[in-house]
Design a protein around this nucleic acid. Structure first.
Lengths: 136, 136
DNA sequence: CGGGATCCTCCCTGATACTG
DNA sequence: CAGTATCAGGGAGGATCCCG
């Protein structure tokens, strides 16, 4: 890589995806990944396929509308597969694709970080709010 | 309201934070971390402190309202520090705290994943949309 | 059981203007 | 420069009803 001209570097920089650019597709993808329901759904599918009702039970507080909407988006983006088993009653299973599984460790890490650092954050909030009372 | 026994309360207290529970503080923290601006701001502060205007320039498309609001939230949660330098004109610098730095690798990984897998996702979308045209 | 369709309500967000 | 204040609109998201 010794002979990389400045022009080549400029061309590369121009071509590479950059999530800081508002119009860049990767920025929009980052926006969708930064959805509260996406991270929870992906984590919920960590250990194999789950039925729709299983997901709804695991992720407390999600409305069926948002769950369906989130799953549709993930399916469209190739992160989960949707399998309908014709039976009575109908059975629908969701499972991570290999692409989804490549993302899972990152989402799991975020979720875990939130659960293990919430104490630090709440302590910081108390300090911040206490300071705010004295200034105005 | 159901009666909650002392044993139940003890069991609840003993249980670790679980982001799947809607009322759990860690769930709310996960929600704030799952904010499109939060991930971008944290990434923008990766290599040292930055001024307000630097951040606004780095993160294309953010309104000053949302940037300020996001920074205030991050400051309150103890993820960034805000330093005002009395001068003309005023200078305000933002920097990650150690807590914020512990989160940075995770956010950077997400951003990088988005930039490197956007092609796969767009391909999946084309396939999904193509299939949808044949069914209705 | 697993949604689709509808309605309705905030709040997120984007301009715009002003200040220290 | 680094915000604060205010207003308006648009879409995200919840609740409800219904169907295959």
């Amino acid at each position: 890589m010794a002979t990389v001209t400045a022009a080549e570097r400029r061309a590369e920089a121009k071509r590479a995806y950059d999530a800081y650019v508002a119009a860049c597709p990767s920025r929009k993808l980052l926006d969708t990944l930064s959805d509260k329901w996406v991270s929870l759904v992906l984590n919920a599918l960590a250990d194999g396929s789950k039925r729709y009702s299983d997901l709804a039970r695991t992720i407390a507080g999600v409305s069926q509308k948002m769950l369906t909407q989130t799953l549709r988006g993930l399916e469209r983006d190739g992160l989960v597969t949707r399998t309908v088993t014709a039976a009575v009653p109908v059975r629908v299973d969701y499972r991570l694709t290999s692409l989804g599984e490549s993302l899972l460790p990152l989402m799991a890490a975020i979720k875990q970080w939130a659960e293990s650092h919430i104490d630090d954050v709440e302590a910081a909030r108390l300090r911040y709010d206490a300071d705010s009372e004295n200034s105005p």
